[in-house]
Amino acid sequence: DNLVIALHSYEPSHDGDLGFEKGEQLRILEQSGEWWKAQSLTTGQEGFIPFNFVAKA
């Protein structure tokens, strides 16, 4: 599955970004460039995340 774990917390800075906490698990929905579309397994919310803040779970 496309699961990743957050290496750092991220505060959203643009509409459509997904904020998350360090250690949170996310499911990657789309990989494109440096911003990936993801869904939080904690909150169920979707949005874009910086790819370098996460690692394969």
Rank of each mutant, 00 (worst) to 15 (best):
F48M: 12
A38D: 01
E11V: 14
S32Q: 13
G47M: 03
E34F: 15
G23C: 07
F20C: 04
A38I: 07
E24Q: 07
D17A: 14
F51W: 13
P12C: 05
S9H: 09
L41P: 05
I28Q: 00
F53H: 09
L29I: 11
P50H: 09
G16W: 15
T42N: 10
W36R: 04
T42K: 15
H8K: 14
D15R: 10
N2H: 12
H14M: 10
G47V: 03
Q45Y: 09
L7S: 04
K56A: 13
A6C: 05
Q39R: 10
L18H: 02
G19K: 12
G23Y: 05
R27W: 10
G47L: 03
V54K: 00
L26R: 00
V4L: 06
R27S: 04
P50K: 06
R27N: 05
W36Q: 01
N52C: 15
E30D: 12
Q45E: 11
V54S: 01
F20W: 02
T42M: 11
F53P: 07
L7P: 04
L29C: 06
S40C: 06
L3N: 04
I49P: 05
N2C: 15
E30F: 10
D17P: 03
Q45G: 07
G47C: 07
E21D: 08
S40E: 01
Q31P: 05
Q25R: 13
F53S: 11
G23Q: 01
E34S: 12
E34W: 12
A55K: 09
D1Y: 11
T43Y: 01
G23M: 03
R27F: 08
V54Y: 04
W35Q: 07
I5V: 11
N2Q: 10
L29T: 06
D1S: 10
K22I: 09
D15F: 11
E24K: 01
Y10W: 12
L18W: 05
A57L: 15
Y10P: 01
A55Q: 11
Q25T: 15
Q31E: 11
K37H: 09
S32G: 11
Q45H: 11
G44R: 05
S40Q: 03
L7A: 04
K22E: 09
A55C: 14
L7R: 05
E30K: 07
G33A: 04
T42V: 14
A6E: 02
V4K: 02
L18S: 02
H14C: 15
L7Q: 08
L26C: 04
D1A: 10
E46G: 03
S13H: 15
S40N: 10
V4C: 06
A57S: 11
F53T: 08
H8A: 12
H8M: 14
G19F: 07
E11C: 14
S13G: 09
G19A: 11
H8T: 10
S40K: 09
D15K: 12
S13W: 12
G44S: 05
F48D: 06
E46L: 12
F20V: 05
L3R: 06
K22W: 04
A57F: 13
W35F: 11
E21N: 10
I28W: 01
L41E: 04
Q31H: 10
E46K: 12
P50M: 04
A57I: 15
V54L: 06
E21G: 08
S40W: 01
Q45N: 10
F51G: 14
L41R: 02
T42E: 10
S13R: 15
A38G: 05
F51N: 14
S13T: 14
W35R: 14
G23S: 02
E30G: 08
E34T: 12
S9F: 07
D15W: 12
W36T: 07
F48L: 11
G16C: 14
E46R: 08
T43M: 02
A38S: 01
L41T: 07
I49K: 00
L29W: 04
D1F: 12
L18V: 03
G33Q: 04
E30P: 02
E21S: 13
L41F: 04
D1E: 12
G19E: 04
E24V: 04
Q31F: 12
P50E: 06
I28T: 01
L41M: 11
